[in-house]
Nucleic acid binder design. Sequence first.
DNA 1: TATTCAGGTTTCCGCCTGGTAACCTGGGGT
DNA 2: ACCCCAGGTTACCAGGCGGAAACCTGAATA
Lengths: 121, 121
Amino acid sequence: MPLKVRKNHSPKPPPSCPLTECMGIIGGAWTVNVIWSLRAGPRRFSELRVDIPPVSPKVLTARLRELEARGVVTREVKPTSPPSVEYALTDLGAELVPAIEAIVEVGHKLKGAPDALVANG
Amino acid sequence: MPLKVRKNHSPKPPPSCPLTECMGIIGGAWTVNVIWSLRAGPRRFSELRVDIPPVSPKVLTARLRELEARGVVTREVKPTSPPSVEYALTDLGAELVPAIEAIVEVGHKLKGAPDALVANG
DNA sequence: TATTCAGGTTTCCGCCTGGTAACCTGGGGT
DNA sequence: ACCCCAGGTTACCAGGCGGAAACCTGAATA
């Protein structure tokens, strides 16, 4: 038996790099899509699910909670029946929108074929 | 025995979303750091390793190959001895720099504590 | 002959991430 | 009495993704 050492041994080397730190957030699956979806105004949980069909409720919840904890989005429960929950970008979150716009822009121009590797002399 | 189905079954559902597609690239570990490191001019493999100490050669190679295949960086072998290899951003790659700048900007302002989650009623 | 140096490649292995599916809560409608 | 809806939560599970370490090539240098 090889003795598994838990990796939570020390509190973790600080990223100390704002780039790495921020990528730790927006790097999660569907995170940028959520922010993108919120750029035009507040949106409810189930609306986000429609905007981003492949996201599962589990992951969507996880992303929204992370973004809320980091101050990127707000969460507001409306006392309707059934209660609905609105998510919106904070000012901080709004700062990410131009970044994501640039990413989308590049996305449009990307060559889609990783197979192009083999074809070039 | 539960019958493992290979996932390469069909050529893959097209991302069809430029955002998701582009995140597929820059989402890889250290990718943004590489682009960030190249923003001020061309850089050799071992210089990048110095710029980004925690990156392993395996991963650095993988990232550079991907970025090259997608037209984000160029790779040029200089016939010195030993031969050195210079990587540089393409025009397309340069488009990502402002995006990454915005990400860095947000990174500076992020609250660092995910543990803040538990403390709230 | 051995070493160094650049720029990788290869193998192995563990973790974390994300997908799937089932379940939950509470009020309102019929 | 029952179901539905919103907005989740939970348990389980696979595999991809990245870290670590060892190895490789060819020319120049000691």
